[in-house]
Simulated assay, not measured.
Amino acid sequence: MHKSSKDLVKCISRFQSLLVLVLMVIAISLLSDRFLTAANGWNIMRQISVNVCLSIGMTMIIIAGGIDLSVGSILALAGAVTAGLIKSPVPIPWLGIELDFTLAGAMIAGIAVGMLLGWFNGQMITRVRIPPFVATLGMLSIARGLTMLWTKGFPITGLGSSFAIIGTANFLGAPVPVWISGLLVLLFIVVTKKTRFGRYIYAVGGNEQASRLSGLDVDRIKLWVYTIAGGLSAVAGLIATSRLDSAQPNAGIGYELDSIAAVVIGGTSLSGGQGSIWGTVLGCLIIGVLNSGLVLLDVSPFWQQVVKGIVILMAVAIDRLRNRGEDQ
Results as ranks from 00 to 15, higher is better:
residue 225 V to G: 08
residue 187 L to M: 13
residue 216 L to R: 09
residue 47 Q to H: 10
residue 217 D to C: 08
residue 213 L to Q: 14
residue 233 S to W: 01
residue 154 F to V: 15
residue 200 Y to L: 13
residue 259 S to D: 06
residue 110 G to N: 02
residue 122 G to M: 05
residue 32 S to A: 09
residue 131 P to I: 05
residue 151 T to V: 08
residue 30 L to F: 11
residue 45 M to K: 02
residue 85 L to D: 00
residue 271 S to M: 12
residue 78 A to S: 15
residue 139 M to C: 08
residue 162 S to R: 15
residue 115 M to P: 00
residue 192 T to V: 09
residue 116 L to K: 00
residue 231 G to V: 08
residue 278 W to A: 15
residue 274 Q to Y: 07
residue 303 W to G: 10
residue 31 L to K: 12
residue 310 I to C: 13
residue 66 G to M: 06
residue 191 V to P: 03
residue 325 G to E: 12
residue 284 C to S: 06
residue 60 M to G: 03
residue 149 L to M: 15
residue 190 V to R: 02
residue 28 I to F: 13
residue 132 P to H: 05
residue 179 W to G: 11
residue 65 G to R: 04
residue 207 N to M: 05
residue 325 G to W: 06
residue 188 F to W: 09
residue 233 S to P: 00
residue 199 R to Y: 07
residue 231 G to Y: 04
residue 209 Q to P: 00
residue 102 T to I: 11
residue 304 Q to N: 12
residue 274 Q to D: 14
residue 160 G to M: 12
residue 223 L to Q: 12
residue 98 E to Y: 12
residue 113 V to N: 02
residue 149 L to G: 08
residue 53 C to I: 01
residue 249 P to E: 11
residue 62 I to A: 05
residue 236 A to D: 07
residue 237 G to I: 10
residue 228 I to F: 04
residue 293 G to C: 07
residue 181 S to C: 10
residue 231 G to T: 02
residue 147 T to K: 06
residue 75 L to D: 03
residue 92 I to W: 07
residue 59 T to L: 07
residue 205 G to T: 06
residue 212 R to E: 15
residue 321 L to R: 13
residue 71 V to E: 04
residue 208 E to A: 12
residue 237 G to F: 05
residue 76 A to V: 04
residue 195 T to I: 09
residue 52 V to S: 04
residue 160 G to L: 10
residue 39 A to K: 13
residue 133 F to T: 06
residue 66 G to L: 06
residue 70 S to P: 01
residue 143 A to Y: 02
residue 309 G to E: 09
residue 232 L to E: 02
residue 243 R to E: 14
residue 40 N to S: 09
residue 31 L to H: 07
residue 90 V to W: 11
residue 162 S to V: 07
residue 325 G to V: 02
residue 247 A to I: 04
residue 53 C to R: 03
residue 290 L to W: 00
residue 15 F to M: 11
residue 9 V to R: 11
residue 220 R to V: 10
residue 91 P to D: 11
residue 134 V to M: 12
